[in-house]
Design a protein around this nucleic acid. Structure first.
Lengths: 135, 135
DNA sequence: TATTGTTATACTCTATAACTATA
DNA sequence: TATAGTTATAGAGTATAACAATA
């Protein structure tokens, strides 16, 4: 028989990446999902927490505890939307943006090292193809 | 800023693959980990359950319940090793091998469909690079 | 004393439903 | 009535330690 299932292969690669990311994020005082939240907020503030949860592919009820802690650390702000007082607009603070950039730099460095043995063409194809498959 | 983190990309692709696999495995009466176990056993019988667990990247204590059910369904056999009566050699039955092949065929078909828009070269590079990154 | 398989226990993560305040 | 945020609860998944049998 031939190759390993593509799914199994992706699981192994993903697990390896996550295992490598975890200590880097720990050192910055961020959980994996806190980092994901900061990264999405770095693109643009979220009009509602629900929108942020959906964007992250995460559950809105679990996101709350994450945002609570990020707010407590001063990395994000939750401001009531003046036009819909049910909603809370979520945005990074300056400290939050700084923290996100630091963590992302660590992660990018780790990824570069991991991709060290690949050619530029292989790297480009990898990203391109994964982006397609991610849908 | 530039691209998404490689890790985030892999998480999304992996999640998509798993979401697509789950209903296929459900239809064959297999959990994800049961399928992983059958697939590893299809390569070769396992000399011990611990060896199988390690090969799968799974926990030996959780594997037991999986193997219990697979044995109850007649898909695997656990025979005491005559040379070390602590150990139990695990191997597929004919039914187990058949079930694994059916499930794998379903999964391969799904994967082919997912890769439909890619060139042969892209597919080859994807597999090759992922295999390298999987370590 | 160390190892295989097993069981038990505690802990975390996840999913679901219900509550409040607004609309 | 429907939605955003929140809280509570139950279930699944996970990690750890302890036990019996064998080496």
């Amino acid at each position: 028989m031939a190759d390993e299932d593509l799914g199994a292969l992706c699981v192994r690669v993903t697990r390896r990446l996550i295992d490598a990311e975890r200590p880097l994020l720990d050192a910055r005082g961020l959980s994996m999902w806190a980092y994901v939240a900061l990264t999405h907020l770095a693109e643009a503030p979220a009009p509602t927490q629900m929108a942020l949860a959906e964007q992250m592919g995460y559950d809105k009820t679990r996101l709350i505890a994450i945002l609570d802690q990020l707010a407590e650390e001063g990395l994000i702000e939750r401001a009531p939307d003046p036009e819909d007082r049910r909603a809370r607009i979520v945005r990074l603070t300056a400290a939050g943006r700084a923290r996100q950039l630091e963590a992302q730099a660590d992660i990018r460095a780790m990824e570069s090292e991991l991709l060290d043995g690949l050619s530029d063409a292989e790297r480009a194809t990898l990203r391109e193809v994964l982006a397609k498959l991610a849908g």
